[in-house]
Amino acid sequence: MSAHKKLNYVEFAAADLIATKAFFSAVFDWQFIDYGPEYTSFSADTAGLDGGFYQAPLSSLTQHGAALLVFYSENIAQTQAKVEQYGGSIIKPIFDFPGGCRFHFTEPSGNEFAVWSEHN
């Protein structure tokens, strides 16, 4: 259910929709609904937030001022290994920060995300 004045949806460009869908399905158990060949959506039920990917040769990177969406993991080392196994690239290996640790990665279409945990 949509809530007044609350974040509701996020969209990302994806140069390779098929690879991006396969990655998020394998690593984070997301499910997708396709709306034609150039758009696919994911839901809060499997992703935590509703959103989608649209076909475009662009990517979202923090070095260019993009917002960073951060996943939570109960086992950060296992999640990092899965990201690498399914075609993600680690761009900042696990590092500590006050309150936990995290790593940054790009998925097959080049969008940057991060994963955090309370412990390493």
Score class of each variant (00 low, 15 high):
M1K: 09
M1C: 04
M1H: 08
A3Q: 10
H4T: 09
H4M: 11
H4Q: 05
K5D: 00
K6I: 07
K6M: 12
Y9K: 09
V10Y: 06
V10N: 06
E11P: 00
A15N: 04
A15P: 02
D16P: 10
D16C: 05
A19V: 02
A19M: 02
F24R: 01
F24A: 00
F24H: 05
S25T: 06
F28P: 11
F28N: 01
Q31M: 02
Q31N: 08
I33N: 03
G36E: 11
P37C: 01
E38A: 10
E38P: 15
Y39S: 06
Y39G: 03
S41G: 11
F42P: 00
A44W: 10
A44N: 10
A44K: 12
T46R: 12
G48S: 05
L49Q: 08
D50G: 05
G52S: 09
F53E: 04
F53T: 08
Y54S: 07
A56M: 13
A56N: 14
L58W: 11
A66S: 15
A67H: 09
L68A: 14
L69A: 14
L69P: 05
L69H: 14
L69D: 09
F71L: 06
F71C: 05
Y72H: 13
Y72M: 09
Y72W: 13
E74S: 12
N75I: 08
I76A: 03
A77T: 15
Q80H: 06
A81C: 06
A81H: 07
I90V: 13
K92L: 14
K92T: 15
I94Q: 03
F95N: 05
F95T: 07
G100W: 08
R102Y: 08
F103Q: 02
H104Q: 09
F105W: 04
F105Y: 10
F105I: 03
P108V: 01
S109M: 12
A114V: 07
W116G: 08
S117L: 04
S117A: 15
H119V: 13
N120H: 15
